Amino acid sequence: MTIVHVFVSTGRFASEKELRTFIEPTYTAEGDAVPSRFIEEIGLHEYEPFTIETTHAGEAMPVRQLLRDASWAEEWLINLDPELWADSGVCVFPPNVIAAPRDSSLEYCGAFTYLP
């Protein structure tokens, strides 16, 4: 089984670009990575940007609707609270490793298993 970690937020980000800025590291002129706030908060290791999916909508909606196009959603999305609403979502897939997901300033929805 493989695990996806899911985070959501409402009203915090004005755009997908703002959300990505919060998630992604920056780089020095020498090419050294500077961890983003999100990376530091959750203790992210084995960073692979192509396996972190973000979604931003113009308004809050049920999280199951917001994340319906995420990878393997048909396997894990049903486990999310149907009453939970948000306008931004982050799905962190392997090989990314998270040490402290609950330390995120985003709402941590949990870790869900799926078969890729």
Rank of each mutant, 00 (worst) to 15 (best):
A86R: 14
V6T: 09
W72Y: 12
E107L: 15
N96F: 00
L115A: 13
P101D: 05
T21P: 00
I39K: 11
R68V: 09
R64P: 03
V63K: 09
F50I: 09
D69N: 13
P62V: 09
A33S: 14
S71P: 00
H56R: 07
A111Q: 03
E24I: 05
S105F: 05
V6Y: 04
E40L: 15
V4C: 08
V92Q: 10
L80D: 05
V90C: 09
L66M: 06
K17W: 00
R20V: 04
M1T: 09
V4W: 03
L106S: 11
L115H: 15
E83G: 08
E53F: 03
A14L: 11
E40H: 12
A14N: 11
P49T: 05
L44C: 07
P95D: 06
V63W: 03
V34H: 06
A29C: 04
E41G: 04
Y114T: 12
P25D: 07
S105T: 15
E75T: 07
V6M: 02
L80C: 05
P62W: 04
S104R: 12
E53C: 07
E46N: 14
S88C: 14
S9K: 04
D87M: 01
G31I: 03
R68T: 12
E75K: 08
P25S: 07
D87V: 00
E16Y: 01
G43E: 08
Q65V: 10
E46C: 12
E48L: 05
R20A: 08
T113H: 14
T26W: 00
Y47N: 10
F13W: 05
D81V: 05
R12I: 07
S71N: 07
T51A: 11
F93Q: 15
T21H: 04
N96S: 02
P82Y: 01
T55R: 09
I52R: 10
A86Y: 05
Q65E: 15
E59K: 14
V92R: 12
F13H: 01
L84M: 13
R37W: 02
V4H: 03
D69H: 12
A73Q: 02
Y27F: 08
E16R: 13
C109H: 10
M61S: 03
T55W: 00
E41M: 04
Y108N: 14
H45R: 15
F93Y: 15
P49G: 05
D103E: 13
I42M: 03
V92M: 10
T51I: 10
G11V: 04
G31L: 01
L19Y: 00
L67Y: 01
V34Y: 00
P82M: 09
Q65T: 14
S71M: 07
C91W: 02
L67A: 06
F112A: 12
F38K: 10
D87H: 06
T51V: 08
C91D: 07
W76M: 03
T2P: 03
M1N: 07
Y47P: 12
L115P: 10
I98T: 13
P95K: 10
S88R: 11
H5F: 02
T26E: 06
F38Q: 11
T26V: 02
V4N: 05
E18C: 02
P101N: 06
I3F: 02
I52H: 06
S9T: 10
P25G: 06
E74R: 11
A70P: 06
L80W: 00
I3E: 11
